[in-house]
């Protein structure tokens, strides 16, 4: 797997495909057009229209006050949503891990689980006392200590940093930990 393939597939894996949006948008565009086409066929055949002849449909829609603002507003909203979909990055919550042989892509919840694990084991806590949220560039680790036993935030920070270094995550992440003030009595 060469560098070009690696970066191409990495991009593909970390971004959502827009193909669903494209097909939905096309069908939305097709619906009014199909209706107008049916009226057009009826007109050419000299048959009675389902509702109105195509030209009249257009005149009714552009001529009736309530209708024209409603339809125009709907069209503007659809247009703006499509523009956002076209230009928004559409990023998925995933990161890459360094690997010589292959491209490794990890979902952010797996990464968060790994950081929680490292933090909890350093603090000597059960795994469920650590929770982590992973964003694109940073991870927030939060720990609920056991009442009466202090947790060293520095140790936890070091442990999560070490874990991130070991994994060589890209885009790189900085982890920040927080020890909650309220603890839990018992183990």
């Amino acid at each position: 797997m060469n560098e070009r393939m690696r970066s191409r597939y990495g991009r593909r894996m970390r971004h959502r495909s827009r193909s669903v949006a494209v097909s939905i948008a096309l069908w939305i565009a097709a619906l009014p057009l199909v209706y107008l086409a049916i009226e057009s066929v009826l007109e050419l055949l000299g048959a009675a229209p389902l509702w109105q002849e195509p030209l009249q449909v257009i005149e009714t829609v552009t001529g009736t006050q309530a209708l024209r603002f409603g339809v125009a507003a709907a069209a503007v909203v659809i247009g703006l949503v499509l523009l956002v979909l076209a230009f928004a990055p559409g990023r998925l919550g995933r990161h890459e891990l360094a690997d010589e042989r292959m491209l490794v892509v990890v979902d952010d919840d797996v990464l968060a689980g790994a950081l929680s694990r490292a933090a909890a084991s350093t603090a000597g806590l059960q795994r469920d006392r650590a929770s982590t949220s992973v964003g694109r560039r940073r991870a927030d680790v939060s720990l609920r200590p056991t009442s009466g036993f202090a947790v060293s935030k520095d140790d936890v920070d070091r442990a999560t940093e070490r874990e991130l270094e070991r994994l060589a995550v890209s885009p790189s992440i900085r982890a920040r930990s927080r020890v909650e003030s309220a603890g839990v009595v018992g183990r």
């Binding site: 797997m1 597939y9 894996m13 959502r16 990055p89 559409g90 990023r91 998925l92 919550g93 995933r94 891990l97 690997d99 042989r101 292959m102 491209l103 490794v104 892509v105 990890v106 979902d107 952010d108 919840d109 797996v110 968060a112 689980g113 929680s116 795994r127 469920d128 650590a130 929770s131 982590t132 949220s133 992973v134 964003g135 694109r136 927030d140």
Partner: peptide
């Protein structure tokens, strides 16, 4: 080869997800 490591849950859009 591309290896995708996942928990099998639907991948969310980028943003924080809180995991124990």
């Amino acid at each position: 080869l591309v290896t995708h490591i996942t928990t099998g849950l639907r991948t969310r859009f980028a943003g924080s997800t809180r995991t124990h």
